[in-house]
Simulated scan of single mutants.
Amino acid sequence: MVSIIIPCYNSEFTILRTLESVINQTYQHYEIIIIDDGSVDQTRSVVEEFFEGQKQSYQYLYQENTGPSAARNKGIKNSKGEYIAFLDADDVWHPEKLELCLKVFETQPIGVLGHTYSLSDNFGRRYYGETIEKISSLNLLLKNFAVTPSIIVKREAMQLFDETMKYAEDHELWLRISFINQVGLLDLPLVKLGRKPLSDGGLSSNRWAMRKGELRMYFKASKYKKYLFSILPLLFLFSLAKHLRNIIKGGF
C-alpha cells in the first residue's frame, strides 16, 4: 500500500484537482492522508463534499499553522503504507504515476524515487521505456534531484523533515536519506505543478532564503559525514556562485 501525504493550507480552489488525480490513479491500493496546516478558508468543506461521492476513505488531520514540514511529518507518523508518497494541494499527478513508480521499486534496489515534472497538461499520453538514473549523495550535494510532489520513499528508508528549516528542507531530507539508501530519478514528467518551483526562480529575497537553507543543509550534512567538513568552504562558494548566476539570469 502507498500512503499519500497531502499537506494543505487555504487550498479550497486547488485541492479538488489534486484529489481527482489521486482517485484516478491506475494503481488503487493506497491511503490518503490530508494534513490541514491551519486553513481559515473552506478547504475542509470542499474535501468532505468531494469524498461524499467516493468509496475511498481518507484521514483529515488538522493542526495549527506550523508549516509544510510539520504537516508532512504528521502525515508520515499517521501513515501505514509500505511506501510514502508526497503530493501538494495545488499539484496534479499523471494517472499512471503510482503504477509506473512502483514498477521501478520492484526492479531497482532503491529507497527513494523521484521523477521529472511539467508545468503544462501533457497527461494525455502513456509512457513506455522508462529511464532510471541513479543519484549519488555527491549529486544531491550539488543539486536537488526532484520536486517533493514527485517523491516516493520506502517506509524503511523514510526519515522525518527538519521542522526548523523553512527552505531546502526537502533537499536536506533526500540528502540525509541518500547517505544510507540508493536514490533514483525516473525521467518521466508524472506531476504537473501548480506553480514554478522556488528553486527555479522567484523573488530575489526568496532566492537568498533558499540559498541560506542550502548552506545550512551543507553544514548539517558535515555532521553526518565528517569528510564533508573539510570541503565546506568549497560547497559554500559553489552555493553562492549559483545564487549570483540566478540573479544575473533572472534579474533583481
Rank of each mutant, 00 (worst) to 15 (best):
I5G: 01
I6N: 03
P7N: 04
Y9V: 02
S11V: 00
R17I: 02
V22I: 15
I23V: 13
I23H: 06
Q28S: 14
Y30I: 01
E31W: 08
G38R: 01
D41V: 04
D41E: 11
T43N: 09
S45N: 14
S45L: 15
V47R: 02
F50H: 08
F50P: 02
Q56L: 07
Y58D: 11
Y60I: 06
N65F: 02
K74G: 09
E82R: 05
Y83L: 05
P95E: 13
K97I: 02
C101D: 09
V104A: 13
Q108P: 00
P109H: 02
I110K: 10
V112W: 11
S120N: 14
Y127D: 05
I132H: 08
K134T: 15
I135M: 13
S136L: 10
S137T: 08
S137G: 06
L138I: 13
L142E: 07
K143G: 04
I152R: 05
V153S: 03
R155D: 13
A157L: 02
M158Y: 02
M158Q: 14
L160D: 15
F161S: 08
E163S: 05
K166Q: 13
A168K: 06
D170E: 11
W174D: 11
L175W: 05
R176C: 05
R176S: 12
S178H: 02
F179N: 07
F179Y: 14
I180A: 13
I180R: 12
N181D: 12
Q182H: 07
L185I: 01
L185H: 03
L186D: 01
R195W: 01
S205W: 10
W208H: 09
K212P: 03
G213I: 04
L215D: 04
R216H: 14
M217D: 07
A221N: 12
K226V: 00
Y227G: 01
S230V: 11
L232T: 05
L235G: 07
L235F: 09
F238K: 00
A241H: 06
K242I: 01
K242Q: 14
H243L: 10
L244I: 00
N246V: 05
F252T: 08
